[in-house]
């Protein structure tokens, strides 16, 4: 997780505006009329643009909304969907909701951890695959469910999941 150092340059906002990803965030900020209560909306957009919330991005948002960085950082770390570190090129999200759990999601995770050599929530050292979990993706009818790169796959087995991951990395 990013640590906050206090001795960074005080004007984080001048340079990055050139980056068009910051532009995308700025558009959303403007559309929300710089309202501080739109912080979560804006962080969603920021994460979409950058893939994760790096410190520079949090500082940018704090500056634009005139909020203390601690407040922005506090919100970013509170919610599970915000990530403060980069994720892999591919994602493999195993649903750990109750329906999937009773149908063996725990075993699927154990098999994937072994296969990828990472723990849940981590990314392989080559930056290829992130192994994550979710809390019920609303596909309980086809439990156990796994989401590969945004695509839901139902009724998964250990073999099927391992095959898919091999394909992802190929």
């Amino acid at each position: 997780m990013a640590t906050l150092s206090t001795d960074r340059p005080a004007t984080p906002t001048d340079k990055p505006v050139l980056d068009k990803r910051f532009k995308a965030i700025e558009i959303v900020i403007k559309r929300n009329h710089y309202r501080q209560d739109a912080l979560i909306e804006i962080l969603h957009k920021a994460q979409e643009s950058f893939g994760y919330l790096e410190l520079e991005v949090l500082e940018y948002v704090a500056h634009k909304l005139q909020l203390p960085l601690s407040r922005v950082y506090g919100v970013a770390t509170f919610y599970h969907l915000f990530s403060l570190s980069p994720t892999g090129k591919h994602s493999c999200i195993v649903c750990l909701g109750t329906a999937c759990y009773v149908k063996g999601a725990g075993e699927i995770i154990a098999a994937l951890e072994k296969k990828l050599g990472v723990k849940l929530g981590e990314t392989t050292s080559d930056g290829e695959v992130s192994l994550m979990s979710a809390r019920c993706i609303g596909a309980c009818g086809i439990a156990p469910a796994v989401v590969f790169d945004g695509e839901v796959a139902g009724r998964q087995t250990i073999e099927a999941v391992c095959d898919r991951v091999t394909n992802l990395m190929a």
Binding site: L96, G97, T98, A99, R135, C136, G138, A139, G141
Partner: peptide, 11 residues
């Protein structure tokens, strides 16, 4: 917010 993991009526 439908937080109960294993429920999808609202969805």
């Amino acid at each position: 917010d439908e937080g109960d993991p294993g429920a999808f009526m609202d969805r």
